[in-house]
């Protein structure tokens, strides 16, 4: 198989990628760690001093941080529930032999390709505006008062937008998994007289279980970093009702110029993501063996 020559060549060819990724991963991380131990404000850049873990204790005891952590979790978990449960239903529906299946699939997957800033602004204005938005018209037509989405339900509004972006992803992945269920198994189940619920519970769900896990983990990674949608709709407000950890770090760094504090927040975000990544990498790694 691999000769001495190809092994050497292999090492040489893989080196640029490894070096680039290593630098990209390590340099910012080490710098962030270093900054997180400093009192360092861009407003007063000549006055930098070492403060140890003070930024972390300040960050972790700051009520704003706890709110941001809470908001992050609410956003991630809500969108996960909506997109995964909705995704299973949509995937089951799209797996049926219906007229125009291919067109349907294109329509369902489309939101995933929309630039996040576009999604957010279209939803905020064209759909959710309490005066001239489409939802307001629907509410009034049905005799309700329109919901003042971003004032009264800011977090729910963000959740709705982000769910719309991620539902197609979950649907597409789960549909792909569904389609690999072999016909024989389906027929055997129907011959055995399995009802739709037991068919779903005993045949479908176990078959797509791994795909569901993968969807949950990948979405979690991305959802922990939701930024653009918040940036263009609420700017973290009102108050800090929709400030998640990425937005808090951005605010701390680029609006309050507090490099030390922002870095501590960044490290906390890294730790959170790594907890999820740990499980994801194991699952994908197991898949690689097979």
């Amino acid at each position: 198989m691999a000769t001495q020559q190809t092994t050497t060549a292999g090492r040489v060819l893989v080196a640029p990628s490894v070096i680039l990724l290593f630098v990209w991963m390590i340099v910012p991380l080490v710098m962030t760690l270093y900054f997180s131990s400093l009192r360092y404000s861009l407003l007063d850049p000549d006055n930098v001093s070492f403060v140890g873990l003070q930024n972390y204790t300040a960050f972790l005891t700051d009520p704003d941080f706890l709110t941001a952590l809470y908001n992050t979790l609410v956003l991630v978990i809500s969108v996960l529930i909506i997109s995964v449960c909705g995704g299973i239903l949509v995937a089951l529906l799209m797996d049926q032999p219906v007229f125009g299946q291919n067109v349907l699939r294109l329509m369902v997957i489309a939101p995933f390709f929309v630039i996040p800033t576009v999604s957010a602004l279209v939803w905020k204005n064209l759909l959710m505006n309490p005066d001239s938005g489409l939802f307001a018209w629907i509410a009034r037509s049905l005799g309700f008062d329109p919901i003042v989405w971003f004032t009264n339900w800011p977090m729910l509004s963000v959740i709705v937008i982000v769910s719309w972006e991620w539902l197609p992803f979950a649907s597409l992945i789960l549909l792909t998994a569904l389609q690999s269920l072999d016909e024989e198994q389906k027929e055997a189940a129907s011959l055995d007289g399995a009802g739709p619920i037991s068919y779903f519970g005993y045949i479908v769900l176990p078959h797509i279980a791994r795909a569901i896990t993968v969807v949950i983990l990948i979405e979690t990674i991305f959802l922990l970093s939701v930024f653009a949608e918040i940036y263009v709709t609420t700017a973290g407000g009102p108050g800090n009702a929709t400030t998640n950890i990425p937005f808090l770090v951005y605010k701390q760094a680029l609006l309050n110029f507090d490099i030390g504090g922002a870095s501590a927040g960044g490290i906390i975000a890294v730790i959170l993501a790594n907890i999820v990544a740990f499980f994801l990498v194991r699952i994908i790694g197991r898949n690689l063996e097979g």
């Binding site: 970093s225 990425p246 770090v249 890294v270 993501a273 994908i284 690689l288």
Partner: peptide, 19 residues
Amino acid sequence: LLMWMLSTKMMPAVGALVP
């Protein structure tokens, strides 16, 4: 090596924003 490369993709961008 592959798994390590994958893990770099999971670094949240906000961790690298400041530097």
